[in-house]
Amino acid sequence: MTAPLVQVRALGVHYPLGRTVLGRGAVLKALDNVSLDIPKGSFFGLVGESGSGKTTLGRAILKAAPISTGEIRFDDEEVSHDVARLRGRALKDYRKRAQLIFQDPYAALSPRMTVRDIIAEPLEVMGLTSSRMETDARVRDIARKCRLNLEHLRRYPHAFSGGQRQRISIARALVSTPSFVVADESVAALDVSIQADILNLLKSLQRDLDLTFLFISHDLSVVAHTCDQVAVMYLGQIVEQAPVADLFARPRHPYTRALLSAIPSLDPDAARTAQRLTGDIPSPADPPSGCRFHTRCPVARDRCKTEEPKMEDVSGGGTVACHFWKETLPA
């Protein structure tokens, strides 16, 4: 097992709700007691419905969301950071090591800057190069790695299709030579024929540049094909985590099973699995007691309503938080 690059321990991200019907001082726990190890060199997938806290977790690790409780440690070969306490120069150093690729390649690029200037901006802001020539060399190098046509560096983003724009976003994120990249729904806005191309590019960049990815996605089939580890989130908590092949072959948490069975199969005659989740994800401002999933869980019992399940280790290197996962596992 390779050493973790990112260690998250009992992380909480809480937002005050102000004076509400819930009474003064109520908080929305976007993340509640989340622990997670992201191994060095992994392509780590984070899945869950909207409102599950995937994006918040990604942002908290980048110190772009307020960390209320718990700890995040980041250790690459050169430095060790206690992310929650970063400020000043150390925070600047962290920013070049940990970067973010956004979802919407149309909104993420300034229409008034050339592609060259967009990619060069992080270098200039962080003061990583000493001359324009050096900056240009770095820009050309990363553009080539992202399979961008160097002729295009002088153009503006409007001239490009969604797939090409996403390459520009990727080049911009990677130009400061980070070791950790959060890709938040980075292929969700792309057509399938382009999506495959960007996924392949991310995988080859990971190998060539020795990167660790946190890949946030609502699309389980994309995660299944790209990631090596997966964590499943529900209402601000991780409910299950496992190596990708294990998670898809033997999902242990009832929520993971429900998510998998909801993916529409390409086979029109695929047996319609009975596991339909009813209702919507509850509001994180007022989460259910006990196990948060019990209101929608097809196998919930009385104990689930009162007692919060603990994370248990399972064979194959995964963890699951369910009182009854052993008994409810399908044969």
């Binding site: 399938v192 999506q195 495959a196 089939s221 898809f248 998998l260 199969s265 390409l266």
Partner: peptide, 12 residues
Amino acid sequence: ALPQLDDLTAPL
């Protein structure tokens, strides 16, 4: 180009 769940190792 479509990622499918019956073969996770198939290239996209």
